[in-house]
């Protein structure tokens, strides 16, 4: 795979945005893994992060706000040959798309979900997101956000996700390792990527994250759910980054009685004899 396989297009992000690093890391991860752009499907919802698929020359689907997961998992269900990766933001994934987040953990289709988590709404110019810290003042929350922030990695663990990781856009090598492990993981894999927003989040800045993130110690057993939950709950003066939890298990295709046999859906054509049989059963 040559390094120009994933051509980049001009972006619409602010200078200094954490998305640049995430985009570059995604590109280098796909190239390092030797994935053919024809076999990769990048899916986004709506938002600044959700524009990421637009900027790489591969198959892309940019649908509706909050609705990145449903089309992504359905594309994977009908064509398991695709490597399906979702890039979208904290508002899209945890706010508007919260129900899909919960239930696709249960569905466990083999997709990688990269959430660009800058703890604020970017595209709509700076309102509180589900992960905005309590007390942060915004245009829509002038007295500070009253609501407790949502802990996406803790929630994913509680809901039974088999792969949960946290990383930071300011640590591209770490991020690349997380992306690669998530893509290789067989099943739904969440990487919550902390990311600075230079325009609208003056609290959780690059320096704020950079002074707090700490790679998880090698002694951590990623199959230990309770240990993973303790790490997930650590988010303050220290923020552990790395794979919190990884447990192998059957994904959607492995659980599905038909798909586990390698049954192909796309290009099957129709089967008049089957319909004929079903009709005769109603006589």
């Amino acid at each position: 795979m040559n390094s120009t396989a994933y051509v980049k297009h001009e972006t619409a992000w602010c200078p200094g945005c954490g998305n640049f690093s995430i985009l570059d890391t995604l590109k280098s991860t796909l190239e390092k893994m030797g994935l053919d752009p024809h076999d990769v499907l990048l899916v986004g919802g709506i938002g600044q992060a959700a524009k990421t698929p637009q900027y790489l020359n591969t198959n892309t689907f940019c649908g509706l706000h909050g609705r990145a997961l449903p089309p992504a998992v359905a594309a994977k269900i009908v064509n398991p040959g695709l490597t399906v990766i979702i890039n979208t933001g904290d508002g899209d994934s945890y706010g508007e798309g919260g129900n899909h987040f919960l239930h696709n953990i249960r569905r466990n289709v083999d997709v990688a979900h990269f959430v660009h988590d800058n703890q604020v709404y970017g595209l709509t110019k700076g309102q509180a997101s589900p992960t905005t810290m309590e007390g942060m003042a915004t245009g829509a929350q002038p007295e500070g956000s009253m609501n407790s922030p949502f802990n996406p990695v803790l929630l994913a663990l509680a809901a039974g996700a088999g792969f949960v990781a946290r990383s930071f856009s300011g640590r591209p090598e770490h991020l690349q390792a997380m992306m690669e492990r998530a893509i290789r993981y067989k099943g739904y894999a969440l990487v919550d990527i902390l990311q600075n927003c230079v325009s609208f989040n003056k609290l959780n800045t690059f320096a704020w994250y950079n002074s707090r993130v700490q790679e998880i110690d090698v002694s951590h057993d990623p199959t230990d759910l309770m240990a993973a939950m303790r790490l997930a709950m650590t988010f303050g003066d220290q923020i552990p980054i790395g794979v919190l939890y990884e447990q192998e298990g059957p994904d959607y295709h492995a659980r599905h009685s038909l798909l586990q046999t390698g049954h192909k859906l796309v290009g099957r054509g129709n089967d008049p004899a089957m319909v004929e049989r079903l009709m005769r059963r109603m006589v």
């Binding site: 499907l41 899916v43 689907f61 649908g63 509706l64 609705r67 997961l69 449903p70 089309p71 992504a72 998992v73 359905a74 594309a75 994977k76 269900i77 009908v78 064509n79 695709l82 129900n99 899909h100 919960l102 239930h103 859906l265 796309v266 290009g267």
Partner: peptide
């Protein structure tokens, strides 16, 4: 999980050729 998911899944499947 809801009708929004249903139609978006159907669209995703169709986009991918199903």
């Amino acid at each position: 999980e809801d009708e929004i998911a249903a139609i978006n899944m159907a669209i995703g499947a169709s986009f991918a050729g199903g």
